[in-house]
Design a protein around this nucleic acid. Structure first.
Lengths: 144, 144
DNA sequence: TCTCAATTGAGAATTATTCTCAATTGGAGA
DNA sequence: TCTCCAATTGAGAATAATTCTCAATTGAGA
């Protein structure tokens, strides 16, 4: 996958600009984050990483997640259950989410029209939007 | 304001159905929640209540907020800063939010078209939406 | 290779929210 | 109005995700 390469380049250039280092831990965490699709918690990612290197610490995973979020390799999602989820952002289009409150399933969708209406609304209020989140909670087709 | 009456009626009928009691604390918390417009935290509401009755406990405020949320007198909003905000829901239309990441200001807006497109999208995925949240984060006209 | 600022691991600290439990109370029925 | 008991309360402990602290380690430029 060349997009993992792309993400690594993005991350290392970002670190270089900030005079920060690309350590072996950061490389491992990035790899594991990209290898596992979907949505995972910081703790889940820690588990993935520890399978490759049992010495990685929780603190380092949290610190790396903050960096990967800052350079837009990952995006943080909060579905209101007290823990944050992460998903890949680099190389992907923006999308919104359905969240099944029964089984926890997350479905992604894109809707250009909704995006446009949001921008229009922002213009009306003279508001500079940096990011946004749209979540629909309910039951998926299997659960309802 | 007759809508405070309306909210009280709604709340007491809700409690009656569940064989729960309308205590003096619950009445006070409801009053304070409705008297203060805008968005407030559980802790902020506790402060309001304690000005009227210093013996009210944190636990009771949290417990009452859960009930008021359940009967749709209040709505819970999570703007991702680690604490939940509450606002009046009863007697109001659904609305979405702009959140200024610099000054913290919250602007509400309604957009019927966006709501329709969301329902359409939900139909496509055969998803039964129970509630949804749309938040636009950025800088308000004063801050940008 | 040397140097040193940046990074790390381990565990303590933080903080919003929930839980526990003995004491209190609202309100249905006598 | 009085009694009774399930529901509620206050106080503080418990929980849990995330952040912080600090001594030891490490990456990369000179």
């Amino acid at each position: 996958m060349s997009s993992i390469r792309e993400a690594e380049r993005l991350f290392s250039e970002f670190l270089e600009k900030k005079k920060q280092k690309l350590t072996s831990q950061r490389r491992l965490i990035l790899r594991q984050a990209l290898d596992h699709g979907g949505h995972y918690t910081a703790d889940g990612l820690l588990d993935f990483c520890r399978k490759k290197d049992p010495t990685v610490s929780k603190a380092t995973v949290y610190r790396s997640l903050a960096l990967l979020k800052e350079c837009h390799v990952l995006e943080e999602q909060d579905f209101g259950d007290g823990k944050k989820l992460y998903e890949r952002a680099q190389g992907r289009k923006h999308h919104d989410h359905f969240v099944c409150v029964r089984c926890g399933k997350i479905i992604e969708f894109e809707n250009e029209k909704i995006e446009e209406l949001q921008s229009e609304e922002a213009r009306k209020q003279r508001f500079q939007v940096v990011y946004h989140s749209l979540k629909l909670f309910g039951t998926c087709s299997r659960c309802s």
